[in-house]
């Protein structure tokens, strides 16, 4: 299993200067957690950055892991491609502790990445990023004709849908017949 360490530089706690509040409440060192996607590449992310994800925040809030325990138990997100998880981690790091701007222009323009990103972000429950992504997907078809929309969003026509459905039924029928024949053969 390979590993990359993300967000460590920005995550280092600042040295207290002369601020009286800092002196009154000593800063707790920031904790880090580890996540990996389908490619098993592990990303080190601060708890602050992970707060964007309601799913992960809920998972870690009561864990109280030590650094070693966190490192030994990365959160597996097998349903998310490695490059997509990387995008999500980057976004969380970039927006750690910052108010989210009304628009995010850094999202991928290529729709096959964007749809994967939407699904991942929805799964991880990152509300602001989901809003940006959904807006971006909608922007793709602004002012387009139904035919262009179909091409851009890769939507099959009703005829293609029906043909695919028939094909699937046919295949299922054949498989069922094959299984019955195999079961009959076994019985003999």
């Amino acid at each position: 299993m390979s590993s990359t360490e993300q967000g460590t530089s920005s995550a280092a706690p600042a040295e207290p200067t002369t601020a009286p509040e800092s002196a009154a409440a000593p800063e707790v060192p920031e904790s880090f957690y580890y996540v990996h996607g389908k490619d098993k590449v592990v990303h080190k992310v601060s708890a602050g950055a992970l707060q964007h994800s309601a799913l992960i925040h809920g998972m870690i809030s009561n864990l109280g892991y030590t650094e070693e325990q966190a490192k030994a138990n990365p959160f597996p997100f097998e349903n998310i491609d490695g490059d997509i998880l990387q995008m999500v981690v980057d976004w969380c790091n970039q927006h750690k502790g910052k108010p989210t701007p009304p628009e995010d222009t850094n999202l991928p323009k290529q729709k096959e990445k964007l749809f994967d990103l939407v699904l991942a972000v929805n799964y991880l429950e990152i509300k602001e990023l989901l809003t940006y992504c959904c807006k971006q997907v909608a922007m793709m078809v602004k002012g387009k004709s139904p035919e262009e929309i179909r091409e851009i969003w890769m939507i099959p026509t009703d005829a293609e849908d029906e043909a695919a459905e028939k094909e699937a039924k046919k295949r299922a029928g054949k498989e069922a017949a094959g299984e019955t024949a195999a079961a009959a053969g076994d019985a003999k």
Partner: peptide
């Protein structure tokens, strides 16, 4: 690659 029709209805609606 995922497409629009791979989205759950709740996301399509959003």
């Amino acid at each position: 690659p995922k497409t629009f029709v791979d989205m759950p209805v709740v996301l399509m609606t959003k």
